[in-house]
Amino acid sequence: MALTLAEAKQETVRIQKSLVALIPEELCSPDRLPAPGSVKMTPVAGSDGSGFRYPGSAAVRLVKDADGQAIVELLEQELRAQGWQETPMPTVSQPKRRLFANAVGYETIISTIDRGDDLPMVVLDVWSPPATAPENFNRFVDKI
């Protein structure tokens, strides 16, 4: 049975929520950002025509002096413990950035944003494997 977009979203959100739950509550700002899955996203067409990927994105605002990179490393360690495979994907601003993929094709990048002019944030981007869109799905306007 093929993965549906609704199922892809459900699992993507579950992964994000399970990672967010690992962030110590005392490091989370009371100024909350939208919860995983609460913002509708536009699925992305697969490059090989194999369906659509659900692009889940969530962020957690931290308290002023929290070490965002230490939280990223904690979450990455959890992914490793769950058997996710990692590939280095460094950028100038995120030299330790990694892409993690699990056995069924979900991928995630966890990063931190700390600009100094706002509270630090941990960003959890999770993409589903290709999924089947519902009938009459319009990839240019439909969001889930």
Score class of each variant (00 low, 15 high):
residue 144 I to V: 08
residue 116 G to H: 14
residue 36 P to N: 12
residue 43 P to T: 07
residue 66 A to V: 06
residue 3 L to E: 04
residue 35 A to L: 05
residue 21 A to Y: 06
residue 143 K to Y: 00
residue 12 T to W: 13
residue 143 K to I: 00
residue 54 Y to F: 15
residue 116 G to V: 08
residue 35 A to E: 13
residue 125 D to K: 08
residue 118 D to Q: 13
residue 7 E to M: 07
residue 31 D to P: 08
residue 36 P to L: 05
residue 65 D to V: 01
residue 2 A to E: 03
residue 37 G to H: 12
residue 138 N to H: 05
residue 101 A to N: 12
residue 136 N to D: 08
residue 66 A to M: 07
residue 77 Q to W: 11
residue 133 A to R: 01
residue 38 S to M: 11
residue 30 P to K: 11
residue 98 R to S: 09
residue 109 I to R: 12
residue 128 S to H: 09
residue 136 N to V: 04
residue 95 P to N: 08
residue 101 A to T: 14
residue 94 Q to K: 15
residue 61 R to Y: 04
residue 128 S to E: 06
residue 101 A to K: 15
residue 22 L to F: 04
residue 58 A to I: 01
residue 127 W to N: 02
residue 82 Q to M: 03
residue 117 D to P: 00
residue 51 G to S: 08
residue 59 A to K: 07
residue 3 L to T: 04
residue 119 L to V: 01
residue 53 R to V: 01
residue 77 Q to T: 14
residue 63 V to Q: 13
residue 130 P to S: 09
residue 57 S to Q: 12
residue 140 F to I: 00
residue 3 L to Y: 11
residue 128 S to Q: 09
residue 79 L to N: 10
residue 8 A to I: 02
residue 45 A to E: 10
residue 111 S to W: 05
residue 1 M to L: 12
residue 51 G to E: 05
residue 94 Q to D: 12
residue 40 K to T: 03
residue 35 A to G: 07
residue 64 K to S: 12
residue 40 K to D: 01
residue 108 T to L: 03
residue 43 P to C: 10
